[in-house]
Design a binder for these strands. Sequence first.
DNA 1: TTGACTACCAGACATTTGTCTGGTATCTTC
DNA 2: GAAGATACCAGACAAATGTCTGGTAGTCAA
Lengths: 210, 210
Amino acid sequence: MAKETRRRVYEFMRNQIRAGSVPSVREVQRAMGFSAVQSAQEHLDALVADGFLEKIPRISRGYRLPERSVSAFMIPLLGRVQAGGLVDAIEDREGYVAVDIDPSRRPLFALRVRGESMKDAAILPDDIVIVRQQPSAQHGDIVVAMIDDQATVKRLRIVPGPAGSSRAELHPENPEFSPIIPEGDLHILGKVVEVRRQFETSVFHEDSIP
Amino acid sequence: MAKETRRRVYEFMRNQIRAGSVPSVREVQRAMGFSAVQSAQEHLDALVADGFLEKIPRISRGYRLPERSVSAFMIPLLGRVQAGGLVDAIEDREGYVAVDIDPSRRPLFALRVRGESMKDAAILPDDIVIVRQQPSAQHGDIVVAMIDDQATVKRLRIVPGPAGSSRAELHPENPEFSPIIPEGDLHILGKVVEVRRQFETSVFHEDSIP
DNA sequence: TTGACTACCAGACATTTGTCTGGTATCTTC
DNA sequence: GAAGATACCAGACAAATGTCTGGTAGTCAA
C-alpha cells in the first residue's frame, strides 16, 4: 500500500540511525528494492516534509532524527581538583557523565563530593555535582571553590562588610562544620547546577586517550 | 607537538560522532587546517590502528566510535504514573533525561519526586529519580511502587511474617510519615538507581562580585 | 472524461568522498 | 652521513552520493 512503504522507509532510517549509521539515499533504495534512486529520494523528502526526519542538504548521509535535537552530552568527571584549578585538573579525569545541557555554551564539569559538610542541603559524600564553570556567583548559590588547594562545595553568602563593602563567605550546611571566611581572594571554580547520587556505578572509566 | 594534533583529530571525531554526525575525511582536513587530504587520512588511519576509532572501508563517513566508548542515552521523564502502571504512563512524558546507562539492557525511566517522605535519605521534592524497571527488589532498596493508583518512592523492607513467611513494607525516611503495609500485592515498578536535583539555572544569570 | 495526485521508474550530471602515488622537511637512531 | 620514521603536502582518479529532468501507471474526485 501507499502508506506502508513510507513507514518501512522511516523505520529503516530510524533503526539505522539509532544503530549509529545514517544510510545514503541509494542504500535506502536498495533496502526497499526500488529500481530508481528517485523513489527513495521522494520518500525521504516526504518524511522530511512531515517532520519525521531532518536533513542537511548536499552532504552525504545527511539525514537526522529530529529527537536528536534533545541530545545528550558527556562531560568529564574530575577526580581531584587541586592547585592550579581546572587547568591541571582537566587531565585528572575519573570518567564521564551524561548531561542534557549543552556544554559548548558554558563549560561544565562534574566532581565527586567528599565529606559531609553539605549534608543538610541533601548533598552527601560520593554524590556527583555538575558544575558550570564561572569565576563568580550570587548570594545563595552552591559553589565549588578552591580552599587550601582543594576543591570544596559550599553555599556562597555575600555579607555586608565595613563601610558599605561586601565580603564573600562559604557556608557549610551542617552545624558540625564552621563557615569559611577567606582572607584573600576567593577562587570560585563554578556554580553547582545539579546533584546526583548513584546507587549503582555506571561511570565510564577510560584507560587512555591519544 | 606531534601527539597534540592526533589528539585534536580524535576529539574532533569523538565530539562530532557523539553529536550525531560522522565527519568525512575532508571535513577533518578542513577542521584541522590541513592543506592535504592525506594528512587527515593518515591521522584517522593511525587512530583506527590504535583502536581509538573503527571504520567501514569504502563507505562515506564510515568511522565509528568503538563499542567500549561512552555513549549517552535519553530516557523518558514521566509526569504522573497512575493506574495501569507504565504502559499508560509512557504516553505522559514530561521530557527526556540523559543517562549513561544503556537502557536497552533493562528499561529505565525517570520520575519526579513529590512530597518529603524521603527527606532523610536526601531525596527531596522535585528531585528526579532514575528508575530501573523491575517487578521486584531487595530489602533495603529504594523502590518506586504503585500505592492507591499513584507512584510512590519508598524504601523496601522485607519483614518476617507469621509461620516463616515474609511481607514487604514500604518505609518512608521521615519520622513524620508512616510506613505503608500493603494489604494485597505490592506492585513494584522498579528500583531507584540514581537521584538528581537540578538547581534552577536562570537564563539571565548575572554574576555578582563575590 | 479530465485533471490532480501519488508512487515508482530511467537516466544523467556535478559534487563529494575514499583512496592512491609520489614528494618534501624534520626528526631520531645507528 | 645513511636509514628509517613521522608529519605534512600536491595532485589525481574512481566510486559513491545528492540532485535533477522527464516519463509511466494507477488512484481518486469533480
